[in-house]
Amino acid sequence: MHNGNVWVFAEQEGGRLEECSLELLGRGRELADRLGVRLESVLLGSDVEALPASLIAHGADTVHMADHAQLAEYRTLPYARVIADLVRTHQPQILLFGATPTGRDLAPRLASALGVGLTADCTDLVIGSHDEKGQRYEDLLLQIRPAFGGNIIATIVNPQTRPQMATVREGVMPMGAPNHGRKGAVERVMVHLTPEDLVVEVLQKEPRSRTVNLKGANVIVAGGIGVGSAVGFATLQELAHLLGGEVGASRAAVDAGFVDRMHQVGQTGTTVRPKLYIACGISGSIQHRAGMDGSGRIVAINSDPNAPIFEIAHYAIVGNLHDVVPKIIKAYRSRS
């Protein structure tokens, strides 16, 4: 029996908490309650005193806050050092990260330093038992994730090592409403860094100026390799704008350089559930479908009548998208 607490890494950038950290606190609260332990959050940064209140409102009982000038920018080595020291001292049984670029950089470094297992990009986390070699393990973290390009769903466990570590995909867990009346403790962490922890410098940061809100969109007009060019995406943009939606893309279209990666829908992009998804020139690989097949209605436009996207479409239009999309624009403009 391991009585350690459940920990959630609170990711922040420039004093703003990542949404997925708050989403994780919601699930972390459920896991901690089920195990009868505390939910704690670990927060690193510089001038972040204002943030623990929000973490507590979202379910944390305690926030371990490492506030230090050298932690202002995320850097792998000092962050991994501080968290590894904290984990060795407090021995949580579960440690969760958002599967953000930061979480996916930090968690594996830390798992290797601690010599423990780590499961990437989980879409669900529950507590359950596991039988192996005649032994029964109770109250393990069952880490559920798609694998093999989304073709299988695997449940992973770490029977022996602690903490049980996982990164969790952004947006798959609902964010609970904050309860500003909740009480919690803030524990300041003494930060000890060596010169070797500080050898990497972050220079010239350029945040994405324009953000695409695929998760919140009611309508997504998505393009695949069939769109053919960046110019082709302009027509999709026009339709998306007209319908009050966003532009999505398949991995192939992103890899071909037609559109920025932030538009990517699918297994390695964003999972979306709009009311309407219009797939233009997307063949429909399993990993793309895994990211959009929960859409309310799917309209698929493809010149290949055998394209797999038609298997999950509600409306199939076999035709050239460069001909069909302008017709949709025209039909919507002249709607009755």
Partner: peptide
């Protein structure tokens, strides 16, 4: 340290598709 407890195949079942003329 990580063990695969269970693997389920994702089954894609075709939907009722309505054909729209282009």
């Amino acid at each position: 340290p990580t063990k695969v407890k269970k693997v389920e195949s994702v089954v894609i079942s075709p939907r009722e598709v309505k054909r729209i003329e282009p």
